[in-house]
Design a protein around this nucleic acid. Structure first.
Lengths: 137, 137
DNA sequence: TTATAATCCTAGTATTCCGATAGGATTTAA
DNA sequence: TTAAATCCTATCGGAATACTAGGATTATAA
């Protein structure tokens, strides 16, 4: 399941992207428009800013704006920041590799190949889609 | 992340499939071979039996055996039983559909299309792979 | 300069889910 | 009748998730 954090984060990014070129958008406006708890959204926006997707302006009239072009923000980047690894098991993760604690040997693990296939098919989708695709429809 | 339940269940199915044609295999043997807590595995085997993948024989000399050919057990079936929906959000699930509580309208949801693509790419992999593929390598 | 409006930041909390365990009841082979 | 196996329900601790609280900081504008 997709976490609420990720879902809200994607919706918020889409909202900001839709208002590109205008004044910065406030958390309150996003929260209201997308039915998200404002306080929860605050922490998500902070994560997205620290990851470099968003910039912010403090004080009255402040808010958030995109720091990169929507076409250049791949979904795989956003998912890795918000949701974590693309892989379903750590031992096939490209960016978050870890040994599985129950597996003595990856080469003899019966689920390994299936997990690689799932990872790659998801990567294909997440590499192809950008923030621009999210707001296209 | 893949739950331990699913991972263990897949490994156990693979183990049983490898011993097809022999005497039924015991939970204890699987648990030992695959580094799984025996009591935890018990409940997983029960689930797999109730779902129709496995049959069991009680009492001394008992154990579990496959009720269907490995080539006919699609991974998508097993995943749906053990892990739940293939989709990452309920509103794009084919077998577990539910409305998302934060979405007034699916057609205007910015993440909807991405979720459909992820679902379909995963379905393709899970439909193609069977239990036979798990033990092939 | 002062009120207001916004982000920033840390900490805490309630709830849910996961992984595992406990303790037997039941069934069957030898 | 004994041992070995599955069957079944209940429970529990810990981790993660989804939020909440409460202010600190910063910038605008009257």
């Amino acid at each position: 399941m997709l976490s609420k954090k990720t879902k809200y984060g994607l919706k918020a990014l889409a909202y900001v992207a839709k208002h590109k070129g205008e004044d910065p958008v406030q958390i309150g406006a996003i929260a209201k428009s997308e039915n998200i708890s404002q306080k929860f959204l605050e922490s998500i926006m902070l994560t997205l800013r620290k990851a470099g997707f968003l910039g912010s302006k403090k004080g009255k009239g402040g808010g958030y704006y995109l720091r990169r072009q929507p076409e250049e923000i791949k979904m795989v980047e956003v998912m890795r920041i918000l949701e974590g690894p693309v892989s379903m098991v750590p031992c096939v993760s490209l960016n978050f590799y870890e040994k599985c604690d129950d597996c003595p040997d990856e080469t003899t693990c019966s689920v390994h190949s299936l997990m690689v296939q799932l990872r790659d098919s998801n990567l294909a989708v997440l590499n192809k889609n950008t923030l621009a695709d999210l707001i296209a429809e």
